[in-house]
Simulated assay, not measured.
Amino acid sequence: MNKIFSGTVVSKKDLKTVKVELISHKSHPKYKKVIKKEKRLQVHNENFALKVGDKVIIKSSRLYSKNKAFLVIKKEEAKKRLLNQEE
Rank of each mutant, 00 (worst) to 15 (best):
A69N: 12
I73M: 11
K19Y: 02
K51Y: 10
D14I: 04
E86F: 15
I57Y: 01
H25P: 00
R62S: 15
G53P: 02
V10W: 04
I4Y: 09
L82S: 09
N67H: 14
I35R: 09
I4Q: 13
E77F: 09
K16E: 07
L50N: 07
H44D: 02
S27A: 11
L83I: 13
E77P: 00
K36Q: 13
K36W: 03
E21L: 08
K30Q: 12
E76N: 10
S60T: 15
R40I: 14
L83Y: 07
A69D: 06
I4K: 11
D14F: 07
N2E: 15
K26L: 07
T8M: 15
V56R: 02
I73P: 00
V52S: 05
L63Q: 13
F5V: 03
H44S: 07
K68T: 14
V43Q: 00
K32R: 14
P29H: 11
E87C: 06
K59I: 07
K33E: 15
V34Y: 03
K79V: 07
L83V: 11
I23A: 09
K12D: 11
T8C: 10
M1C: 09
L82A: 08
E87N: 14
K75Y: 02
N84I: 12
A78M: 06
I35P: 00
F5W: 12
H28M: 04
K36E: 15
N84Y: 12
V56N: 02
E87K: 13
F70T: 01
L63P: 00
E77N: 13
K13S: 07
M1N: 09
K74G: 08
N67K: 14
V72W: 01
N67I: 06
M1S: 14
K32A: 13
Y31N: 15
D14Q: 12
T8R: 14
V10L: 08
G53V: 06
K79E: 15
K68H: 05
K68E: 10
N67Y: 05
L41D: 01
E77A: 15
I4V: 15
R62C: 04
K80Y: 04
I57S: 04
H44W: 08
D54I: 03
V20M: 03
I58R: 01
N67L: 10
